[in-house]
Design a protein around this nucleic acid. Structure first.
Lengths: 345, 345
DNA sequence: CTGTTAGCGCATTCAA
DNA sequence: TTGAATGCGCTAACAG
């Protein structure tokens, strides 16, 4: 391994000078020696030792990423955005899967902190009733003073910065679109209602109905759990109750609805409208491509990353940083229109 | 930050002793002091500084993962398997997206090496005709002496360990299954034939035909490029030529075939058989769920990870390690049977 | 069974 | 414009 000292010897200057030059510090050294140092460095493929540097600067230039399941297309897209932005800013990202287990969130955080990451992006797997776990997580984070930015889900009892989509707006967009296409008896299959974003999406649905002066009909609202099965199951009562359109709060449940429709002789996108949520890649591959609310997760990932890095910078500034209070960035979702919700015939 | 020295002071022993105890080194220190050290460490939430440790041990316990696109479900599943195994063995993984650009493979490798990762898992984006890039990559890897294990694709001019699926076997399984279901005029839509694994899958297809004494018919073999569009396009001539089944060399092209079928009044899974490759998650969500060759990527990821770590260990051993020659692990694929290839009626 | 010493590679303070 | 000295936190020789 070629070190700063080796270069110093070869050029005939001190290690200090080399360090100064290689880190592009202002002036101080003559252009001539500067050039020689750079040449020698390049010649030997010099690369600084990050561990050594981290030891003294107390910066690892590494971000930790904790997420429930990287194999979920939603999260892998997020990871992609984060990685892109991190690299652009000279950070690495270590990723940790929590496998949807809240306990692993805490373990992973501990590992990352031991590793002295500079910041953490969290998509929490800790559910709202796992209070002790949440406390543990928060305590750990607080003690370390490492900036944490949440994505999408708000960990209970915490007040980290958070970036997420405006779920309510999503529900509104989906439902309004169905209405604008001429559907009038629109049902909603929600996610688990102990999750705030599930409630938000439902609220958006109600907003749209209100806008069209359509009274809320509880018989057209069913509670699912984001699985295909639940979509299939919950769709049936709604169909029995004669609805002509459904807003499914995620794409998987929308698929369940499609399967249910088979028994009812509806023609999807013609006399029955369906809109999903998440814009999962498979939406466009379906027989009748599925209209879905899109979150632009890639950009959200980039933004999340920018936010952590900003916080890292602030926490190094002398001023009483972090005193800004938690920031909340809400992205406005879009609607990707495909044929599953064509104009009603 | 609480250091080993602080513990030493508090307990009244030397830093060495503390280090010994905390690293669980054999004997040497009395159970009594051992316990006291452990207690104090726990009390103060002591965690070792990885940078400092890395500086002296020259091990970062970090793996680099270079892949074309984490948002591809195939790769995210791989990442998941790798992460799982790495954590189990006390390693972290830094992931780098190359965005399908060979140039970024080289850049990413450089970054990871600067970062002193202990090993690298590579899913290369360098295509077979980008010789200079491949050379650059190989030179970098060779100079660093860091173990590299490839997944799936063999980088040209390299001889790293590699784990991959037996593509030929996959093609064979797919085709044989169609034959066993009674289809007799089976077409094949291949991937780009300048990729060895595309050729392998085609070979497997031919193997199965041979087994059934069916002569090769060039009119039933079309060359696609793994996109839905190409599946749609290439299917048409085959259908014109009267085939009653198709082995599509990936799932996306299989979807293209399904779209093409619409025009020909075939009933998928009844009088027309279709098998894809990769077992993409969306296969089971299709109207007629798609039978597909499955690679069990998760386990392959774990194995890949085990292999790098093994190599890392070997490279630290005094013996002339690495002299073993490159290892090649081939997984046997499976076939996930769904309704797209039911018995021919 | 335990302590002393040294040094990993770098950035930084202070002195020249 | 430059250099010497120091220390980050840890492990590993080598002594006791």
């Amino acid at each position: 391994m070629y070190t700063i000292k080796d270069i110093a010897n070869e050029v005939g200057v001190s290690p200090t000078t080399v360090s100064l030059v290689l880190n592009k510090r202002p002036c101080r050294v003559s252009d001539e020696t500067r050039k020689r140092i750079q040449d020698v460095a390049k010649e030997h493929n010099y690369a600084p030792n990050y561990s050594a540097r981290a030891l003294v600067t107390k910066q690892t230039r590494t971000l930790g990423l904790i997420m429930p399941d990287i194999s979920n297309p939603y999260f892998s897209e997020l990871a992609k955005g984060i990685e892109r932005e991190a690299h652009k800013q000279g950070y690495f990202v270590i990723f940790c899967n929590s496998n949807d287990q809240g306990k692993k969130d805490v373990e992973n955080l501990q590992l990352l902190l031991n590793r002295q990451v500079d910041g953490v992006v969290l998509v929490s797997s800790i559910s709202d009733d796992e209070i002790p776990l949440a406390n543990e997580f928060n305590a750990l984070a607080a003690r370390s003073r490492v900036p944490v930015v949440q994505f999408d889900r708000q960990l209970i009892g915490s007040s980290y910065d958070i970036v997420s989509v405006n779920h309510r707006m999503g529900g509104y967009l989906a439902t309004r679109f169905l209405l604008s296409q001429g559907y009038r008896s629109i049902g909603c299959i929600t996610g688990p209602l102990n999750r705030s974003f599930s409630r938000d999406r439902l609220e958006g649905y109600l907003d749209a109905l209100r806008e069209y002066n359509i009274p809320k009909n509880d018989a057209l609202i069913a509670s699912g759990d984001f699985t295909l099965q639940s979509g299939l199951l919950q769709a049936q009562p709604l169909l029995e109750n004669g609805c002509d359109g459904i807003f499914a709060c995620n794409d998987l449940m929308a698929i369940g609805v499609i399967k249910a429709l088979k028994k009812y002789h509806y023609r999807l996108g013609e006399d029955f409208g369906l809109v999903g949520f998440d814009n999962n890649p498979f939406c466009e591959y379906l027989e009748t491509p599925l209209t879905s609310v899109d979150q632009n997760i890639y950009d959200m990932g980039k933004e999340t990353c920018r936010l952590v890095i900003k916080r890292i910078r602030q926490s190094r500034k002398p001023s009483d940083a972090g005193a800004y209070g938690a920031q909340e960035i809400r992205f406005t979702p879009g609607l990707v229109i495909r044929s599953s919700a064509g104009p009603k015939k």
